[in-house]
Design a protein around this nucleic acid. Structure first.
Length: 877
RNA sequence: GGGCGCAUAGCUCAGCGGUAGAGCGCUGCUCUUACAAAGCAGAUGUCGGCGGUUCAAAUCCGUCUGUGCCCACCA
């Protein structure tokens, strides 16, 4: 692929004072964006009389940089708000970022590690200020990327989840939940990351199949023994029972007895519990309440003690030979010790099972008994489910709602405390005598000897869950909150339905007295590479959107992403496709150049239909139909169909046909050229406005040049005038058929595209008489001279085109082509005839379907007649 | 183990009951005075397999195979 190909010499029309022959995105995008921001186009006014339209951005993590997934979602959100703004809404797209607790803390800790330090060397206060410093330094990167993309966000309302206002929102809702007894503190088995040294919630655990080993161990002594199977031998040090199924005949005699726990001096009871599956393994399960959630539940049911065997690093804390060993070292050490005692029954055997990993650092999660803060989600989740069930919130695409219901209807309580330093500190103080005081935002924390604040911070998603209203000023009753809540659309990836969407629903309904946080949830797929593969660093197929934006322009990247956006499905994207979009931008560019060179204008009234040529009426009819289609697609989040419709209308109809057909008119000058100039101006004006939300830069440049107006960003959204002209559409269809047919003949005959051929046209039986000049221009047909000899006669669509190829006609090629065409027409005729002879079909089929078949039959019969006569007219080979 | 989805042209995907479509790629001819990042013309599919419903099935139902995703306390 050769880039920046220069034509060797420039023709006289290549110099246009305003527009060069190739669109150069890099020259216009940056300045345009800054101008939009300076003029305040994106700044929403809470006092406006216009109806509000609000989208709050899914706040990217400060740790991150914009990837294609962001670019994708931002493109769609930007398109939605830009269109609504043009439609006369007070449109607000509110930007911001998330402090991303664990992720950011990990980043800064990594940075410290490079200096040979840990956060403990700095102490909490200094560490946190270091994170803030880090945020200032790197957090701005993503904001710059948003500007490059052209995101029309309201920068005056930019928020960060750790802002003062948002922190106040966090504290307010914590207090409210606490007072409503929806937040509580309890000791339970939690998911513990021994590397991050914090609890994580269930959904922050990623399960994957790991190769483990199942070992069978004999418990007990003498007659009273049984065999248990485990993949986690090291936890046996903390066993406080063995469980069997109550109906299991093999172990009935042992239930209630105490048996010896190997490697320890303890004895443990055998308990009967229905949780045990007698079919699995030996039917006997070791019970470690402190290190396994199931075992914890069994322990609760049977009043068993919990014996912790590991510390927060996953290091064994039980005195004896294993003290101080890491959990994985301890596993083999324990198995070794058991083997030397002859207690390993069968050899250990490979066993793949699903193991939880920390979603942040991939360390194997260690279930651990721990005292944490929890949200009682039952009533909140119920409300969150109902809001969708009763239609106050629509999920798009709809089949995603099933996933949502599965989650909210079966949600477990949410562990919200994290043993981190970066985040919103839990607003609870503990007194010297065990007092617990939750402190609201306007209250003074208790002071005095022995009082101290909880050292934990809240789960990042706790503050993200408040985003749709905390960003608008809640808990204050601000004008923003009044004007812009509920927000209209939440657009995000389906991968964070549970993390984020469900929690915003819970908190939004709870904090805003049942008012939904958003009316529509639009869930997008994930961006994938051109082979449909997930983009991942290890696979080496991750693309930095900036690279493509530099190379092809932001519009090209945006258009490609929108083009791939079939609702709810993943979006494959490859560089070739971005190139194709860039080509489209360039095509619009050049078409507009052509239009301007030929006097296209938006000045003055559009002439009434009776003063327009069929060509003009046809394109205006198609323009309005396309406009209506585009509106429907925008309203339904059908970005792929939207871009497809606009692409094809622009390229196939306006550029390839309307512009070409109008060239003779423009060349002819005078009043007809003026009229067509006005029509072409109209078409481009509307088309550019329709395209603007998706490709803002190129459309802004062209539209302002075309119209001389300030900016398409604040232009009115076009309206369907209702003008349709079926007659003109049919006429142009016939015209296209004539031209296409003759072109095919020319091509089959090996004529060079530019070669002039003398021709005689008979258009008397058609409505095409007015198009003779256009036909001759597009087909390179010269007037017939005195010595004209019709060596080929093509009847098509009621017209006859006779060409003089002066005996050079390739008879065999033509015979071959006609024979093939005849066969196709005959097949068509046979099929149609059969269909129309089918009474059941005629009785049941829709009128339009029957009409279509009739038309097909007519066409086929006409074709057969025409082709037959052509074949007969061919000279003998 | 449960749930959801997908299998259509070489690739990525639309279509979802009435003659198989798009983009990219491919072949041929062309600088035809907007655009070679272009124009024109062309080739390519037993719509995963097997059954069924229907006058009619890529489209509805069943089933098999392959494949992807989500959920789950798989010792």
């Amino acid at each position: 692929m050769t880039e920046n190909t220069q034509r060797p010499d420039s023709g006289p029309n290549d110099s246009n004072p305003e527009l060069p022959t190739q669109y150069a995105p890099a020259d216009v995008e940056g300045p345009l964006y800054e101008r939009w921001v300076e003029r305040g186009y994106f700044t929403a006014d809470a006092k406006s009389e216009k109806p509000p339209y609000t989208i709050v951005i899914p706040p990217p993590n400060v740790t991150g940089s914009l990837h294609l997934g962001h670019a994708f979602q931002h493109t769609l959100m930007d398109a939605l708000t830009r269109r609504k703004r043009m439609q006369g809404f007070e449109a607000l797209w509110l930007p911001g970022m998330d402090h991303a607790g664990i992720a950011t803390q990990n980043k800064v800790e990594q940075q410290l590690a490079e200096e040979g330090k840990s956060r403990h060397d700095l102490g909490r206060e200094e560490f946190v200020s270091r994170v803030w410093q880090w945020k200032e330094e790197y957090g701005g990167k993503i904001l710059g990327q948003m500007r490059r993309l052209g995101d029309g966000v309201d920068w005056s309302r930019e928020r960060f989840t750790m802002d003062e206002g948002l922190s106040k929102a966090v504290q307010t809702i914590f207090k409210k939940l606490y007072d409503d007894e929806l937040i509580y503190r309890a000791e339970r088995i939690i998911n513990w990351c021994p590397r991050c040294l914090t609890a994580i919630s269930d959904i922050e655990v990623e399960y994957q199949e790991d190769a483990g080993e199942l070992v069978s161990i004999t418990y007990g002594e003498g007659e009273e023994t049984l065999v248990v199977a485990t993949t986690r031998a090291e936890t046996m040090l903390g066993d406080t029972a063995v469980a069997v199924h109550p109906d299991d005949e093999r172990y009935k005699h042992l239930v209630g007895k105490q048996i010896k726990l190997p490697l320890t001096d303890r004895t443990i009871p055998v308990v009967a519990d229905t949780h045990v599956d007698p079919e699995f393994g030996t039917g006997a399960v070791k019970v470690t309440p402190a290190h396994d959630p199931n075992d914890f539940a069994i322990g609760q049911r049977h009043g068993l003690p919990s014996q912790t065997v590991m510390d927060e690093h996953g290091v064994i804390t039980v005195h004896g030979p294993f003290l101080g060993l890491d959990r994985f070292e301890a596993r083999s050490a324990v198995v070794g010790a058991l083997r030397s005692q002859g207690r390993i029954v069968a050899e250990k055997r490979p066993y793949t099972h699903s193991v939880g990993h920390c979603s942040r650092c991939k360390t194997t999660v260690e279930p651990r008994l721990s005292l944490q803060w929890w949200v009682n989600v039952k009533p909140l989740a119920k409300a969150a489910g109902d809001a969708v069930r009763d239609g106050r919130v629509a999920i798009h695409p709809e089949d995603m709602s099933k996933r949502y219901f599965d989650w909210v209807d079966n949600m477990h309580d949410w562990c919200i405390s994290r043993q981190l330093w970066w985040g919103h500190r839990i607003p609870v103080w503990y007194g010297p005598d065990g007092e617990v005081v939750c402190v609201g935002p306007d209250e003074q924390p208790p002071t005095g000897e022995g009082w101290h604040q909880d050292t934990d911070v809240l789960d990042t998603w706790f503050s993200s869950g408040l985003w749709p209203f905390s960003t608008l000023g809640w808990p204050e009753k601000t004008p923003d909150l009044e004007k812009f809540y509920s927000t209209d659309v939440l657009l995000t990836g389906h991968d964070i339905i549970f993390f984020w969407v469900a929690r915003m629903m819970m908190f939004g309904l709870y904090a805003m007295d049942g008012e939904v946080p958003f009316k529509t949830i639009s869930l997008t797929g994930l961006v994938r590479d051109e082979r449909g593969k997930k983009m991942s660093k290890s696979f080496g197929n991750v693309v930095d959107p900036l690279d493509w934006m530099d190379k092809y322009g932001s519009d090209a990247v945006r258009f490609t992403l929108a083009k791939g956006a079939n609702p709810g499905t993943d979006v494959p994207i490859g560089e070739d496709w971005v190139q194709a979009s860039r080509n489209f931008a360039n095509k619009i560019w050049n078409a507009t150049r052509f239009a301007l060179m030929n006097g296209a204008t938006v000045e003055g009234e559009l002439p009434p239909a009776e003063q327009l040529s069929a060509t003009d009426r046809w394109i205006l009819s198609r323009l309005n139909a396309t406009l209506a289609e585009a509106d429907a697609f925008y309203d339904d989040f059908q970005f792929s169909k939207l871009t497809d419709a606009l692409y094809h209308f622009a390229w196939d109809e306006v550029f390839d046909w309307y512009v070409e057909l109008s060239k003779t008119t423009f060349m002819g000058g005078g009043e007809p050229a003026k009229v067509s100039g006005r029509v072409l101006g109209e078409v481009l004006d509307v088309l550019l406005r329709l395209l603007h939300p998706v490709v803002p830069f190129v459309t802004e440049t062209l539209w302002t040049t075309l119209t001389g107006k300030e900016s398409v960003v604040v232009a009115d959204w076009p309206k369907d005038s209702g003008f349709r002209d079926a007659g003109a559409e049919r006429e142009i269809e016939n015209l296209q058929q004539v031209i296409t047919e003759v072109r095919r003949f020319r091509s089959d005959q090996g004529l060079q595209p530019g070669q002039r051929v003398p021709a005689r046209l008979d258009l008397s039986g058609t409505t095409l008489a007015a198009h003779e000049d256009a036909i001759r221009q597009m087909l390179r047909l010269q007037p017939a001279g005195d010595d004209f000899q019709a060596t080929a006669t093509l009847p098509v669509a009621g017209a006859t085109v006779a060409l003089d190829l002066s005996g050079t006609i390739d008879v065999e090629a033509e015979r071959k082509r006609l024979t093939k065409a005849l066969a196709a027409a005959e097949k068509d005729k046979a099929q149609s005839t059969a269909k129309l002879g089918n009474e059941a079909f005629l009785a049941k089929a829709a009128e339009a379907a029957v009409e279509k078949i009739r038309k097909r039959l007519e066409t086929a019969e006409a074709d057969i007649e025409r082709i037959s006569s052509q074949l007969a007219g061919l000279p003998k080979g």
